[in-house]
Computed example of a mutant assay.
Amino acid sequence: MARMHTRRRGSSGSDKPVADDPPEWSDVDAEDIEARVVELAEQDYDPSQIGMKLRDEGVTGTPIPDVKLATGKKITEILEEHDAAASVPEDFRNLVERAVRLREHMAENPQDHQNKRALQNTESKIRRLADYYRGDQLDEDFTYTYENGVELLEE
């Protein structure tokens, strides 16, 4: 499939192995995993970072290759159950951070045409994603502006 703002195709990535149950060597209790997920969320880690930390460090030294296989729930579902979920989805927040950084860079370097194009593309992605999340996880009347982006990041 082609990329959004270029005509090129992306390189293919690896696929997750097909598995129905967690491996035998990773026999950590589901409650311990959920407690560790909530603990990492309280330390301001994003769900993707939590997954990597559990994969690398694990719980009590035992790595967790897949939280959904071990607990039956995704990391975001665990965070929502324990009221530790972020107010804005992670992918939307990352795009807004990038746009705010680019906007500040463009204020200092107005002749940087390459980053001007990158800012336009990023804001286009934000508007598309805002349409997807509007009403569900964003306000019904949310429209992206630089000021709204800065406010979102301060929450």
Rank of each mutant, 00 (worst) to 15 (best):
E97S: 12
Q114L: 14
E108P: 03
D112G: 14
N109Q: 12
T122R: 03
A107R: 07
T122H: 02
V96A: 06
R98W: 00
R93Y: 06
M106Y: 06
H113V: 09
A118F: 06
Q114F: 08
N109M: 06
R117K: 07
N121H: 14
N115S: 09
V100Y: 02
Q120Y: 13
V96F: 00
M106G: 03
A107N: 06
E97Q: 15
R117D: 10
R103W: 09
R98S: 07
R101P: 03
E97M: 12
R98D: 11
Q114S: 15
L95V: 03
R117G: 10
A118W: 05
A99K: 04
R93A: 13
A107C: 03
D112W: 02
R103G: 00
Q114W: 12
R98N: 13
R103F: 03
R101K: 13
V100C: 04
N94S: 14
T122W: 06
D112Y: 01
L102M: 11
Q111M: 14
N115W: 05
N109C: 00
V96Y: 00
A118S: 13
D112H: 13
N115E: 15
M106I: 13
L102Q: 02
P110T: 02
A99Y: 00
K116L: 08
Q114G: 09
N115T: 05
R93C: 04
Q111I: 04
A118Y: 11
N121G: 09
L119F: 10
M106K: 10
H105K: 08
Q120C: 04
N115F: 01
L95D: 07
L102I: 05
E108Y: 06
E108V: 06
V100D: 00
N109A: 10
M106C: 09
M106P: 01
K116E: 08
D112E: 03
R98A: 10
N121C: 07
E104V: 04
A107Y: 07
L95S: 01
E97G: 10
Q114C: 09
Q120T: 14
Q111W: 08
N109I: 03
M106T: 02
E108T: 09
Q114R: 08
H105Y: 11
A107D: 08
R103E: 13
L102Y: 02
R117E: 15
Q111Y: 13
D112P: 05
R93I: 04
P110N: 03
N94D: 12
Q114I: 09
